[in-house]
Design a protein around this nucleic acid. Structure first.
Lengths: 171, 171
DNA sequence: GGTATGATTGTTATAGTATAACATGTCAAG
DNA sequence: CTTGACATGTTATACTATAACAATCATACC
């Protein structure tokens, strides 16, 4: 079991429910703790910049552009040049702690790091929330399609743009 | 039936087989002809720039960046400023005649325009060929995943990066 | 034909995203 | 305490994309 707490937090227990109300501070702290453990396990370092970038991403369920992140870093005394943000973001992505949302040219924190997953993302164009959806069946279908032509998949991008339940009501 | 010719062209009959040898000039001409028909049907115009951009994309199975396209356009006497390329590319994408490959920040011609399809792409990192794979099952799985949280999908991006059969052998 | 209308293209300028290359600093192993 | 690897800071630049306006072209209508 990935969590040690009770099931009162839909944002943690069912990460695809980022759209639903949940104890966000809680699920953020949870993800951060697991990130720390994962990185230590691999003998890597979650340095101040890297840690702070992850925290910044965890503060919202939205995706942030590299320059948004950079602006916040700079305001806190870190470097204010693009590579500072991009390097930290690249590190987090390589370690599976963050994901790049290509449709938005932006990044979002991984809500369940460590658990093997090729993620699929649901991007609400109303409120800009990005949710990580269960993607195993999607990946399986994609693998099957690729297999027909002998193509071997190494990495994949699966993103859906649309409206979350709340924003459907609003519209 | 989308084609009026016999089944000797894998590139046309099985568009997901872009990796396999096929009569490319033929399937390009085919796609172009159908593009013309589609646009006329909608009362829109396949102007010289638009038509030429589509031809340029059809000349290869690779994805081309907007600036690659622009360079070729400029060399042929069309405008040489970014909007010239982007407007034509946007038009083609809106009409389903071309697709944007987000992983590459690039564009590729649609190999079977007119047939309703939410495309999935297989991108070979060896030879840079981009193939359009059958994506109906993938979309179904994605819809199912989204449905669980009440999310309604409007547009989706499905791309896989990996190695095509030929490049697997080479490696 | 003439002309109003909207669509298309051309052009200028600028915004936004990303990386190469090198200098400096930090930390841990030997 | 030095070496070497990794991390960060910094400069500069490359690449991708769009806003805004001017000029042109095509079409439908009078």
């Amino acid at each position: 079991m990935a969590h040690s707490h009770i099931d009162a937090c839909p944002g943690c227990e069912a990460p695809d429910l980022a759209f639903a109300a949940h104890d966000h501070a809680h699920c953020s702290a949870d993800a951060l703790a697991r990130a720390e453990a994962l990185v230590a396990e691999k003998g890597l370092r979650l340095t101040p910049v890297r840690r702070r970038v992850l925290e910044i991403l965890l503060e919202e369920h939205r995706a942030l552009g590299a320059y948004d992140v950079l602006t916040r870093l700079a305001a806190e005394g870190f470097g204010n040049q693009p590579p500072v943000a991009y390097r930290a973001l690249d590190f987090l992505e390589e370690q599976g702690l963050a994901h790049r949302i290509r449709r938005l040219n932006a990044f979002t924190a991984c809500m369940h790091p460590g658990e093997a997953h090729a993620p699929a993302f649901l991007i609400c164009r109303g409120c800009n929330v990005v949710a990580e959806a269960p993607a195993a069946p999607v990946m399986a279908a994609l693998q099957a399609a690729a297999g027909q032509s002998g193509f071997v998949i190494e990495r994949s991008t699966i993103e859906a743009l649309g409206l979350c339940p709340s924003c459907q009501v609003a519209a």
